[in-house]
Design a binder for these strands. Structure first.
Lengths: 132, 132
DNA sequence: CTATGTGCAAAGTGTTTGCAAATTT
DNA sequence: AAATTTGCAAACACTTTGCACATAG
């Protein structure tokens, strides 16, 4: 497999906008939601463009993709953190690294670690408060 | 939304077979792989049946579903454990709970915890050994 | 000018579903 | 006999892609 010389990326308005939209929220939106927001600025932007740019932004390490079931969600927060998903309202919350402590002993078994992803499910404080 | 009285499940050969197949491997297979195995016993079983039964087995708590990107993978191991995915060969390994220690302090914030899922990526010992 | 990116629509992929016939209880 | 399950094929939801035109560098 020959690694293609990395492509020279342009700074298109579409790409900038998509990144901006993603940076402006902590809601871990889907491609479709981003598309709807983007249409407010560029009414005829296409969903394909949104997907293509999300892929590029991810390749460039500017965003991450959360694979929550069938639908991908995207996150412009790229520093170390984890996620909590509320089973009632579906919201995804960030978990700060200091709120969770993980120690693993895998390297000694010959495994190299690249990423550690923690996903917690449960019921969020809002939903816990509002129900009996 | 009225919760329908739980359905009385039958013990179909198809369902039993699918569970057996899943129990016989630690490879965290996809629905399609299970389908191919099942066809060896029931040549005209349909993929739809495989999906329907996987969903039922999951509802009954007999298997779990791993959502690794687009494609679901299934696991008949339902006791507490985590997963490691090798970026080179794509294999998914089980991580024993004693190999990883997690402490979180989320309950105090009003969040109730239901499941804690840890997914680690990296390079497995096999791939680390075989390459330079 | 030229390679990269866009919009559009069509195609792809994994999964779900409607239906009539078959099967379990 | 009644309700669940099956196989089949069509439908789905999300994502990717081919193409001709547009645009950034």
């Amino acid at each position: 497999m020959i690694k293609k010389d990395s492509i020279k990326r342009r700074n298109t308005y579409q790409r900038q906008l998509i990144l901006e939209i993603l940076k402006s929220t902590t809601a871990h939106p889907t491609a479709d939601w981003i598309y709807e927001q983007a249409r407010k600025e560029i009414p005829n932007i296409s969903l394909g463009t949104v997907y293509r740019n999300l892929k590029i932004l991810k390749e460039e390490g500017l965003i991450i993709e959360l694979t929550d079931g069938k639908q991908s969600r995207f996150d412009a927060r790229i520093d170390n953190h984890y996620h909590f998903k509320c089973e009632k309202c579906g919201s995804i919350y960030d978990i700060e690294p200091e709120d969770i402590e993980i120690n693993h002993s895998l390297e000694f078994k010959g495994f190299s670690i690249d990423t550690v992803d923690v996903n917690i499910t449960g019921v969020c404080s809002k939903c816990n408060g509002e129900n009996a």
